[in-house]
Simulated assay, not measured.
Amino acid sequence: MSHPEMSGVGRCAPVVELREYTLRPGGREKLIRLFDREFVETQEETGMNVVGQFRDPDRPDRFVWLRGFESMETRRQALADFYGGPVWAAHKDEANATMLDSDNVLLLQPAWAGAGFDLTGRARGPREDSAPTPDEGSPAVLVRVHHIRQEATEDFATAFRDEAAPLLARLGAPLAGIFVSNHAENTFPRLPVREGENVLATFQEFAGTDALDRHRDATGDDAGWRAIETRLAPYRSRRPEDFRLLPTARSLLGRPTA
């Protein structure tokens, strides 16, 4: 009989990758089954945190996931250990066969002290060959990527911390994590990251997509939120991107605490 497995992590490591993959038709469920069975514990054994894995209900060709590292140097070593190790060697052809593009990667760091993910008490689903596809009533995560002018990063992050984050909490959807671009040199160039990007990315957790959509409507109708958006607009380089995500059975982010 399978039992949920507990993650040993608490507050997530300070270097985070937000990875968005574009997959071949029909490839997402194949990749999720493989990933959740073979690539969670085996990555964490090298020193990474596997934070979350997600389906995008609005784009059946997209798989999104997050992993964390203690530093850029430990990132280099952990990635070398995993991608040079036996598990990836055994399964890389199957995984790569599902993918059209795996280079859409943002390298991030917490926007301020305490802004990273706290994964204390999060439970993974069982390690098994297949996991059910979630429906629209499953837990959901909203990611918003704000594109900001690099010279405005500090002012944007300060305004977000002091004004936007408290208002979102009052509106019933506190932020689970707030990150800004990490501009460090890529210590594992075999895996590219998006260079020349400057973003602030936020993550919110919801009981389901209906609750997520109601929250987006409520913020759009809230005069205080519209005022904050107006104040933030001069700092932006282009419009923010939103996407809704449904966690897989083995994701930590998007799942309730045990």
Rank of each mutant, 00 (worst) to 15 (best):
P4D: 05
M6T: 15
S7A: 15
G8Y: 07
C12G: 13
V16N: 09
V16K: 03
E20Y: 09
T22W: 05
L23K: 03
G27S: 03
K30W: 06
I32C: 10
E41I: 06
Q43K: 12
T46S: 10
G47P: 08
M48Q: 08
N49C: 07
V51L: 14
F54D: 02
R55W: 13
R59N: 14
R62H: 04
F63K: 02
R67F: 02
G68P: 03
F69A: 09
E70L: 11
E73M: 06
R76Q: 10
D81Y: 07
G85N: 04
G85F: 08
W88K: 08
E94T: 11
T98N: 06
D101A: 11
S102I: 12
Q109T: 12
W112S: 01
A113W: 03
G114I: 04
L119M: 13
G121P: 02
S130E: 14
P132Q: 02
D135W: 00
S138L: 07
S138V: 03
A140D: 01
V143T: 15
V143D: 06
R144L: 13
H147C: 04
R149F: 08
A165H: 10
P166F: 03
R170S: 07
R170N: 08
L171S: 03
G172K: 09
A173K: 15
L175D: 15
A176V: 04
A176H: 09
F179N: 10
F179G: 02
V180S: 12
S181L: 15
H183T: 14
L191W: 12
L191G: 03
E195W: 02
A201S: 10
F203G: 08
E205R: 14
A218H: 04
A218T: 01
T219E: 12
D221G: 12
G224I: 00
W225Q: 05
R226G: 01
R231S: 00
R231N: 00
R236H: 04
R236G: 00
S237V: 05
L246S: 10
R250M: 07
S251E: 00
G254W: 09
R255P: 01
A258I: 01
